[in-house]
């Protein structure tokens, strides 16, 4: 088996690749469902129904998609410049920490001032967190995959320390959780009485802004040039290191918004289970979207749908909801393969 380069496929064909990857993912998941002793058709029907079969399901899927849009965007913009930010999880938690530090009464301001201040502060903290690995990379050539990945564990332990210490809710019966944010620091719900909150709108707006940055601005051009061919970009006078630093600031900032939006819009306080791996799932979301910021919206909703749908399905069909994790992981592998196939043709002997 060999790979041969081939010319770029048309846009329509390119769009078929994620679809193909998803179909293959379902086929592979079917085998596991069969192994669990259920019918793939009824299981996938139940997943789809659980994800989008009712207003409640749909709103739940969009709610779950919100942090995934942020982390997916953070990964998409970073990967475009070939800055391998695997640390969206840590940046998310830092965003959550800033939200409870500023939002639990320290700043007695009205909503229209407090929320923007918290957002900016959270973004700054997330940016700062990724700045370290970015500087180590540009100055000393330290691999950012290692540093950002390991920072995830460091930050999670740091958050754990805060929740057992200074940020611990005095009324929390000893649980490692922070106090609730004040009403002025809460993002309102889009529909009264439902869980979907304005974090979803902020996520959509962020995606549009990222798309504009990548397509229309000097920075987006520089990021794509650096990601495509660093050496040629440097030769042409593009300040490669400065672009990587700016990319880190953008990516880390967006990832931190995921933490802000979860605390301020949904959970109300910070706990150690704020994120069931949204930072890592963001990588899948970004890859499924082929790093396109607008595509991130669709792929985040898709991935969220699988998680939400699988939860509902496991309650009725008795197939463990872990199937969702397997499917998302398989989707990443098939998508990476599909992206390879957009550029190469496989020749079998």
């Amino acid at each position: 088996m060999r790979l041969e380069p081939k010319p770029a496929p048309s846009l329509a064909v390119t769009l078929l690749y994620p679809v193909g990857a998803i179909i293959v993912t379902f086929l592979i998941a079917s085998l596991l469902v069969l192994a669990a002793g259920a019918s793939p058709f009824s299981v996938f029907y139940l997943v789809a129904k659980g994800a989008a079969g009712s207003q409640f399901a749909l709103l739940e899927t969009l709610t779950r998609a919100t942090p995934l849009i942020f982390t997916g965007l953070a990964v998409a913009v970073a990967f475009r410049a070939k800055l391998w930010n695997i640390g969206a999880e840590a940046q998310l938690y830092i965003g959550g920490v800033v939200t409870v530090v500023l939002g639990t009464g320290a700043l007695p301001l009205p909503s229209y001032l407090l929320i923007p201040i918290i957002m900016i502060a959270a973004m700054a903290a997330g940016a700062l967190l990724l700045l370290g690995p970015a500087i180590l990379k540009t100055r000393f050539g330290v691999d950012e995959v290692v540093t950002t990945l390991l920072l995830n564990f460091i930050v999670l332990l740091f958050v754990s320390m805060l929740l057992e210490g200074v940020l611990k809710d005095p009324t929390g019966l000893g649980w490692p959780q922070s106090s609730k944010v004040i009403a002025e620091a809460q993002l309102p719900r889009i529909i009264q009485g439902k869980r979907l909150h304005y974090g979803f709108v902020i996520a959509i707006v962020s995606a549009v802004i990222c798309w504009v940055i990548m397509k229309k601005t000097v920075l987006g051009y520089e990021m794509r040039a650096v990601g495509n061919n660093k050496e040629a970009a440097n030769f042409a006078g593009i300040p490669v290191n400065r672009v990587l630093i700016k990319t880190a600031i953008l990516s880390g900032g967006i990832a931190a918004l995921a933490g802000f939006s979860e605390v301020s819009g949904l959970k109300g306080n910070l706990t150690l289970d704020l994120s069931p791996g949204y930072g890592y799932s963001g990588i899948v979301v970004a890859m499924l979207a082929m790093l396109n910021p607008l595509g991130v919206i669709a792929s985040a909703i898709f991935v969220a749908g699988i998680f939400v749908g699988a939860d509902a399905m496991s309650r009725t069909a008795g197939v463990p909801s872990y199937i969702a994790q397997v499917m998302v992981a398989t989707a990443l592998l098939t998508m990476v393969t599909a992206i390879l196939l957009t550029r190469y043709r496989v020749r079998w002997k």
Partner: peptide
């Protein structure tokens, strides 16, 4: 390797020194 950015368009490549 140095003169052009292969996966970018002709337009994006000609402006690379003066964008």
């Amino acid at each position: 390797a140095v003169g052009t950015i292969g996966d970018m368009s002709i337009t994006e490549n000609v402006i690379s020194e003066r964008y």
